[in-house]
């Protein structure tokens, strides 16, 4: 009985606990640094992205009117938020 508890119940409980914790502590992900191309200075600059900016969402994440990107190149991900 004790052996079964150690072999089956406890690991199963651990997995459930871990997955549950992952969902429970899910927060709005904050992207710290994003990039935009400054058309006036014609160079890539870095900025802090808003909370909730990521690859999903309908509204573009902007900084000073410029579209934010995940990396300083146009091939990277355009950041959006819900």
């Amino acid at each position: 009985m004790k052996s079964n508890f150690l072999k089956l119940v406890l690991p199963a409980f651990a997995i459930l606990l871990a997955v549950g914790l992952a969902f429970a502590t899910e927060d709005k992900t904050i992207l710290q640094i994003a990039h935009y191309y400054d058309t006036v200075d014609q160079e890539w600059k870095s900025a802090t992205a808003e909370e909730g900016c990521g690859e999903d969402g309908e509204n573009p994440c902007l900084y000073d009117g410029y579209q934010l990107y995940s990396a300083p190149n146009f091939g990277s991900i355009q950041l959006h938020k819900e």
């Binding site: 871990a18 997955v19 992952a22």
Partner: peptide
């Protein structure tokens, strides 16, 4: 068990936000 909790927890968190993790 501690390692299982740690790895399953962090792996689940990463997979839930895979795009952000990649960023």
């Amino acid at each position: 068990i501690l390692y299982i909790i740690l790895f399953v927890y962090t792996a689940s968190s990463k997979l839930m936000h895979l795009g952000v993790f990649r960023l």
